[in-house]
Nucleic acid binder design. Sequence first.
DNA 1: AATCGAAGGATTGTTGAACAATCGATAAAT
DNA 2: ATTTATCGATTGTTCAACAATCCTTCGATT
Lengths: 236, 236
Amino acid sequence: MATSSAATRGTSAAVSSASTAAARLRVIVPSVADRVADELRLQLAEGVLLPGTRLTESTIAEDLGVSRNTVREAFAELASERLVVRHPNRGVFVASLEAGDIHDVYTVRRTIEVSAIRGGGSPEAVAAVRAAVEEGKLAAAANDDEGLGTANQHFHGAIVALAGSRRLNTIMSQVLAEMRLFFHKATMDAHFYSGYLKDNEEICEALEAGELERAAELLLAYLDRSEEKQAEVHGE
Amino acid sequence: MATSSAATRGTSAAVSSASTAAARLRVIVPSVADRVADELRLQLAEGVLLPGTRLTESTIAEDLGVSRNTVREAFAELASERLVVRHPNRGVFVASLEAGDIHDVYTVRRTIEVSAIRGGGSPEAVAAVRAAVEEGKLAAAANDDEGLGTANQHFHGAIVALAGSRRLNTIMSQVLAEMRLFFHKATMDAHFYSGYLKDNEEICEALEAGELERAAELLLAYLDRSEEKQAEVHGE
DNA sequence: AATCGAAGGATTGTTGAACAATCGATAAAT
DNA sequence: ATTTATCGATTGTTCAACAATCCTTCGATT
């Protein structure tokens, strides 16, 4: 519906450069609430805001120079992504994942990623997986730990993308965002990712060779090991 | 609505022994925004609000006797569930699923449900699946089409619950909520569900017998057929 | 001294009103 | 008929206020 109107306008106004330009120039200006959410998301990912931290509406509103109501909308967005938890009448807090949550997150990942890789996917999608692997190699060569981490996330994002489902993609991004919440505890350990690199390479090769079942098994083993490590670091 | 304060006051004064009782009696009073979202969700599921319908903030605020800001928060909640779509500066509209969306939704369902049933699940979880099947039989015996539909949704919810993952459960509820958006077009056709009943029974039996792979195959075939039918009804 | 209960302060939840920005449609002009 | 200008309606955002609720501190009671 919405996209059809834009399309029809584009075709009907083939001569008039104005309307097509307007349609093309249509810069998506994120709402203020969205930008607040983005900023908070960033601070959450960077570890500036640690799990359990309380987020006071008035403070954030003042800091970012926006209204309390707008902050409120941003909170709603973040809460829907589980990055933040609302305690009624008490405020919102940075979500802190407990042992059960870690297992739960990995359950979701196993379900989606393994299923996606079993499906194979288009050549371009496979190429994206390969690209993520190479990205990781480059980061490793440059001793860029941060880059290694994001490359790893790109890798798993690309695997989910094999399924070609918009919804699965957004679900995966949200899960990855959740994971970033407790990753920086382990991210200091450089060996954490170094081992993954070889795994990714192997999985990618199996995928490229069309050995989907083997790729799936490798991925599954990888996820199990990863969960174990996380539980260790986070463990009590 | 306005008497909610009296209710909370009554509970707080009811008991003298404080903390444990308070923790247990803690009646979850949904915020006004939540109740607005609930009401809209209901109307969406019932087909009162059809896909594409525009939801004007002021109108809804007036109708439900709440503030515009509160309606706005409810919209944010519904938008995060994809039940509603925001068009910047234009308003929110009831989401209308197009052909691609239907396929996408079924992709998510195949991924999650098949994976869940392959895992088997605890005896109680399996019992819940059986319960949903029986619920469907009862509804069929009573010629209760509405009941048949909800029983079917319980069935698939129970299947996902086999995985024992909170996150997968909520993902599934959201997907089911999305499907309800375009289901009432097909819901008139009583034969739509009648065929499913036997399928559910068969899948459940395989699950109870521990023949997980067969159960998974049956479920997969079921979902494929279901998607096909939906595409047909909705199709072009 | 320890427990319990009653103010006090702070923050959230919700409302209402205001205003600029933007969109859609209608009317005017070329 | 196409373009332009105008107008009305609606959204996006802010501000200010208030009740409800929570946490803490401080007394009071036993």
